[in-house]
Design a binder for these strands. Structure first.
Length: 417
RNA sequence: GUGGGCGUAGCUCAGUUGGCUAGAGCGCCAGGUUGUGGUCCUGGAGGUCGCGGGUUCGAGCCCCGUCGUCCACCCCA
């Protein structure tokens, strides 16, 4: 039996999934770079303090951080998300604004794994710093929607809300606290403890016994300042102009404390498991300042790679790309013919593979079949002597003999390059 | 962190009230086919039954512990 396996919540991504991941990130990168975003690759670990700004009341900070002391005595944490890193980078390098960046890569949270939730999980995302314009909020949301479309997803719903400015948020939070603690008896025990940590999160409870109290709770929309309300309606107008469907969800509360004003979530309507949220984001005006930078507004989103792929599976779209092997070379003379033919094909940019260990022709043909190649090239003693090869189509099984010198041009033509 | 289900071949699983040498399908390898894959036939390799302890004449099966995994809660992507 094996001595080791992957740690809980981590896994190896093998073929063909690994290529699918790469394609996913490529599609994302192409889309956002077309919109003027540049790539940022922040480190995977940082000073713990960077991430504490995510919110003292969140479980991400209190329970789920992969933190440790390094050999130099520094408090280090594996990043649980990348927004804080991007803001730290902004403060550190002070690029000119607007600063539009995108990222892709793994994050780490110490959680109990289950479907669509891992301790090491990948996200792609964007952040824009230094722009207050509500039209940007809509553009950022549209970017994600466009990406989903390119993946082929159609069952994605945009849920939209505004948490108001920090003053609004605090006043609303106090109003909620008053409402819920006045009726604490009829609240579930879990929600009672949530109430003390973060009243907003009680709205997120899915427990049936909390439903009626939540329905009767004060509305965020009644607590928005004039400025925040104007901003929010401008965002909605811009979304309508862009033809992006959305539903305003008064109860939408996002997990991280830094969110202000516009918040949104992307929900797969085709996913039945617990995790239907495949992405989310919002404004975090104030995070840059909290990290020691100038007062700078920010907005962004992160999309979960696993969950989005789960949604793709549910819709039967964006499957794994097929093998890059187009030609498989079968050599019944010992292997040296295949050796040189593969070298030629590869030099010409044609994906090719072959068998080793002088296996039987039948075994080599089986390998050719499994490789996914469209063509197979067969060399036996006759062909070697005649300086020719047989080209066989794997699907139809028709074959022709051509001279070695013409091999690459024949193959190129047959593959339709 | 809480609760529940499940750990038997590479994969999916069967295995009776505890009872001979632990099985099937798929996959893999070889042969049937002395020059040809995908179909078919035959054969073969591959297991400390997750791990440790206990009960028993005897444990894949029962008990305890542990680890892993899945699901739900919590939380979140």
């Amino acid at each position: 039996m094996p001595s080791f396996a992957t740690s809980p919540g981590t896994r190896d991504i093998l073929a063909p999934d690994a290529a699918r991941w790469r394609a996913f990130q490529q599609v994302f990168a192409d889309g956002v770079e077309t919109a003027g975003f540049t790539h940022i690759i922040p480190p995977m670990f940082e000073d713990l303090g960077v991430f504490l700004r995510v919110g003292e009341s969140t479980e991400i900070v209190t329970k789920e951080m992969y933190d440790f002391e390094d050999k130099g005595g520094r408090r280090i944490a594996l990043r649980p998300e990348q927004t804080a890193s991007v803001c730290r980078a902004f403060v550190e390098h002070r690029p000119t604004t607007p600063w539009k960046v995108w990222y892709a890569g793994p994050n780490f949270r110490y959680e109990k794994p289950q479907q669509g939730r891992y301790r090491q999980f990948d996200q792609v995302g964007v952040e824009v710093l230094g722009v207050d314009d509500p039209m940007l909020d809509a553009e950022v949301i549209g970017l994600a929607i466009n990406f989903y479309r390119r993946l082929g997803l159609s069952g994605v719903e945009v849920r939209l809300n505004s948490l108001g400015d920090s003053g609004d948020r605090d006043r609303y939070s106090a109003a909620l606290h008053a409402h819920f603690s006045g009726n604490a008896d009829s609240l579930s025990p879990e929600s009672r403890s949530t109430l003390e940590r973060n009243p907003l999160r009680v709205l997120d409870s899915k427990r049936p016994e909390d439903a009626s109290l939540i329905a009767a709770a004060p509305r965020m929309s009644d607590h928005l300042s004039e400025a925040a309300a104007t901003h929010f309606s401008a965002v909605q107008d811009a979304l309508r102009r862009a033809g992006v469907d959305f539903v305003v969800d008064d109860r939408l509360v996002r997990g991280l404390d830094y969110y202000r004003r516009t918040t949104f979530e992307f929900v797969s309507t085709r996913l039945t498991a617990a995790h239907t949220a495949i992405g989310g984001g919002g404004r975090y005006d104030g995070l840059v300042a909290a990290l020691g930078g100038p007062d700078t507004s920010g907005i962004g989103f992160a999309l979960g790679l696993d969950r989005t792929l789960l949604a793709c599976d549910a819709e039967g779209v964006f499957g794994a790309p097929r093998s890059r092997i187009e030609v498989f070379v079968v050599d019944a003379t010992g292997g040296r013919e295949a050796e040189s033919i593969c070298a030629h094909l590869r030099a010409a940019g044609i994906g090719s593979d072959r068998a080793y260990d002088q296996r039987s022709m039948k075994a080599q043909m089986k390998s050719a079949d499994r490789s996914g190649a469209a063509l197979c090239i067969i060399v036996g003693d006759d062909e070697r002597l005649a300086q020719s090869v047989i080209i066989r189509t794997m699907e139809g099984g028709s074959q022709q003999t051509v001279s070695r010198a013409d091999l690459v041009s024949h193959v190129t033509r047959m593959l339709g390059h």
